[in-house]
């Protein structure tokens, strides 16, 4: 997932067809299912891949949007929902039920699942757990430890796609070397 996803990315850049993006993600999940066999393992792997993407993506995001420091969890959640999703996924998200430690994000649409139907035997698969990883990885880079999970998933019969994000802690900035 990169800035190449369809949608209004403020920083411009090349764009590719969103279907290609959706299908590529599908192929990736498919391949993981073949390789790892258990859906639970696939969830974990997707989450880990997402985290690695997030760690890089945050710099791209900062560079393109020129966002200043998010001083707290609320600001960070709003920035992700309002700018992040629009920029990288081409869809908008709304933050609901926000307080200092927890929030929920509702996505207007989810391009990742455009052509997806979850078969009966793959019910434990959480198809979009990559997104959770991305958010966790990105916030980790700006010193916020969060937990993120999919709380409502249309693939499992819910009405909308909803992410649940919970703040674990703010990481202090400390001197990394021992004093000699």
């Amino acid at each position: 997932m990169s800035s190449k996803a369809k949608g209004a990315s403020p920083g411009g850049g090349d764009r590719i067809n969103s279907e290609l993006f959706t299908l590529t993600y599908g192929a990736l999940v498919r391949h993981l299912l073949l390789d790892l066999e258990s859906p639970e393992e696939v969830n974990k792997q997707l989450d880990k891949m997402g985290q690695n993407i997030g760690i890089r993506l945050v710099d791209d995001f900062l560079a393109k949007t020129n966002t200043g420091r998010c001083r707290n969890f609320r600001e960070a959640a709003k920035t992700i929902a309002e700018t992040g999703f629009r920029m990288f996924l081409g869809c908008s998200a709304k933050v609901t039920q926000i307080d200092d430690k927890e929030c929920k994000m509702v996505l207007s649409e989810n391009p990742l699942t455009d052509f997806v139907e979850l078969p009966e035997k793959l019910q434990p698969l959480s198809y979009c757990s990559l997104l959770c990883g991305v958010i966790r990885g990105a916030l980790e880079q700006i010193s916020m430890k969060v937990e993120c999970e999919i709380s409502k998933d249309p693939l499992k019969g819910d009405e909308r796609f909803e992410l649940h994000m919970r703040l674990v802690e703010y990481v202090n900035e400390e001197y990394p070397f021992k004093d000699d």
Binding site: R69, R71, Y170, V171, N172
Partner: peptide, 8 residues
């Protein structure tokens, strides 16, 4: 003292 997040 360690600087908490968002300060400094």
């Amino acid at each position: 003292a360690p600087t908490p997040h968002g300060e400094g």
